[in-house]
């Protein structure tokens, strides 16, 4: 085993001043994303969702922990693994499913699909399928906030693979130079498609330390621990809002599924199945639930009703998508250019 879990169990201090209702909300948000992803996975073989999916199962604590520290006005820009970020930022599940089903009323009007979720209504500024492509754009949004005097923070999400793109480091240099109100969340899941981290980056060269050397405040957190991610994100947001400049958060969590598509691809032999088994014992959703249960913040019956609600929401969203119209020929070539002033 190469990539072993190195985190610790939850502690009360990580919860900080979060009220029980907020603690439970974090759980519900993760549970919702998990069940949505499982529901997508379960129906992907039907071939109705003609879009390349990248499931976030196993990494839910990162998007939920980070987005819960942001406000509605703040902007997020995702990479190709978009579902969790969109939902955590308040995304519209029926619009997301419509997008997956290639319907006219998808959140991107069927012009994006799973890799390009975008929704101004919730501050989902966009997502890029080119690793690292979203990162300077998010910094530009930080610059705009600075220039226009907006109390707004921008955050971007990218993987350990994207962190091999030069543009990330160009961006960190500029963000530090200008003290931009931007947060760079690196979701280190140890794999880029089938290629493990050790084949791509030298052993011991830690991402957060590289970021720190660019003059950006950086830290590494257990990416399966929603409280740890949330606490780091809150520190970053406070820094950004007070003019303290950018932050880099490396959150480590294991990618449970294949790079893309449905299901586990361990049988392809590119990683040790024992790794997955180990990380599944540190499930971000279940371990946190156990902690909440033990601390008396949640009751088993509450979870059951949450699951019923979420499943009903998913069923309704599927129904919405399936019953929604397809785009027509008239939709193909509109909005290539903006009509200036319109």
């Amino acid at each position: 085993m190469r990539y072993v879990y190195e985190g610790q169990s939850f502690s009360r201090s990580e919860a900080g001043d979060l009220m029980p209702v907020q603690l439970v909300r974090l759980f519900r948000d993760m549970l919702r994303i998990r069940r949505v992803e499982e529901a997508v996975e379960a129906r992907y073989h039907e071939d109705q969702m003609k879009t390349p999916i990248h499931l976030v199962i196993g990494q839910e604590a990162i998007c939920v922990g980070a987005c819960s520290a942001l406000e509605h006005r703040d902007l997020v820009y995702a990479g190709h693994r978009t579902h969790g970020v969109y939902l955590a930022k308040g995304g519209d599940l029926p619009a997301m499913f419509s997008e997956f089903f290639c319907r006219k009323n998808g959140c991107a009007g069927s012009r994006g699909g799973s890799m390009h979720l975008i929704d101004q209504r919730v501050g989902m500024a966009g997502s890029s399928a080119i690793c690292g492509g979203n990162v300077p754009i998010a910094a530009g949004m930080g610059l705009a906030a600075q220039l226009l005097g907006l109390e707004r923070v921008s955050a971007c999400f990218f993987g350990d693979g994207a962190a091999e793109e030069g543009v990330i480091w160009e961006t960190l240099n500029f963000a530090a130079l200008k003290r931009l109100p931007s947060i760079f969340v690196c979701e280190n899941n140890f794999f880029s498609v089938f290629t493990p981290l050790f084949k791509r980056q030298p052993e011991g060269a830690e991402l957060w330390k590289k970021a720190e050397s660019f003059g950006v405040t950086a830290e590494v957190v257990d990416g399966t621990n929603v409280l740890a991610v949330h606490a780091a994100a809150r520190r970053a947001v406070a820094r950004a809002r007070s003019g303290g400049g950018p932050s880099f958060i490396e959150a480590r969590a294991y990618r449970w599924r294949g790079h893309g598509g449905a299901g586990d691809d361990n049988h392809k032999g590119y990683r040790d199945p024992a790794e997955l088994t180990l990380w599944q014992q540190h499930c971000p959703v279940e371990r946190y639930y156990e902690w909440l249960l033990e601390a008396g913040h949640i009751a088993a019956s509450e979870r059951e009703s949450m699951e019923r609600e979420i499943d009903a929401e998913i069923a309704a969203a599927y129904q919405h998508a399936e019953q929604s119209p397809n785009p027509t020929r008239a939709d193909l070539d509109t909005h290539v250019y903006a009509e200036t002033g319109a």
């Binding site: 500024a125 754009i137 530009g140």
Partner: peptide, 18 residues
């Protein structure tokens, strides 16, 4: 800085937000 790709991305992001 001499960072054409990042600065172009910064340009895009700033244009997208006002």
């Amino acid at each position: 800085p001499l960072s054409e790709e990042a600065m172009t991305g910064v340009c895009v992001g700033s244009a997208m937000s006002g």
